[in-house]
Simulated assay, not measured.
Amino acid sequence: MLIVNLLDRPEHLPALAAAHVQAFGGLLPDWTVAQAEAELRAQQRDAIPCSWLVEDGQGWLGSVSLLHDDHEQIRGWSPWLASLYVQPRARGMGVGAALVRHCVAQAAALGVSTLYLYCEAPMVPWYQGLGWRVHAELQLGPLAITVMEIRTRQD
């Protein structure tokens, strides 16, 4: 597995945008693939927002983003580990955990001391296993979510 900055693999943008809309579009019913692609194209290399891909010899396996804001209803916390996505063929192979660890390390390198994410209840134990703590529980649109946090560095 190789983790690369999305800016280094623009050929994957259309497929990644489509996967994101399919996976996360329930929270944003008016979100289109074109909008998702435009957001991914607006990424930066050494600043927030940024995104990374995991690749193998057959293409991309998954992605993760580091964003200032992830959803308009939860702007009180920032920044966010967002859009963690692993293709079905790569699930259970450690791709997601590698992407989460990479995003946390990159956030720390950018000076972020606390990073947030949100997920549904079944994923809470998985993130806890990676060192994340429950921060809050709330309703986000149609979903009951858990906001989690991790300290990326000690200031």
Rank of each mutant, 00 (worst) to 15 (best):
M1E: 10
M1R: 09
I3P: 06
V4R: 09
V4T: 08
N5F: 05
L6H: 01
L6C: 04
P10H: 05
E11G: 15
H12I: 15
L16N: 00
V21P: 04
F24K: 02
L27G: 13
L27T: 11
D30F: 06
T32C: 00
A34N: 09
E39F: 10
E39M: 08
A42E: 11
A42H: 11
A42P: 08
R45L: 06
A47P: 03
P49S: 14
P49Q: 12
C50D: 05
C50G: 05
V54I: 10
E55R: 13
G57H: 05
Q58P: 00
G59A: 13
W60Y: 12
W60N: 11
G62Y: 03
G62A: 07
S63F: 00
V64E: 00
V64K: 00
D69L: 03
H71L: 05
G76V: 11
W77I: 05
S78W: 03
L81M: 01
S83V: 00
Q87I: 01
R89D: 15
R89H: 15
R91Q: 15
G92T: 02
M93S: 12
L99F: 14
R101D: 10
R101F: 10
C103R: 00
C103Q: 03
A109Q: 14
G111N: 11
G111S: 07
S113V: 13
L115S: 06
Y118A: 03
Y118S: 10
C119I: 02
C119K: 03
P122H: 15
Y127A: 09
G131S: 10
W132D: 03
R133E: 13
E137Q: 15
L138D: 11
G141H: 02
L143G: 03
I145H: 01
V147F: 05
E149V: 02
R151C: 01
R153E: 07
Q154F: 08
D155R: 07
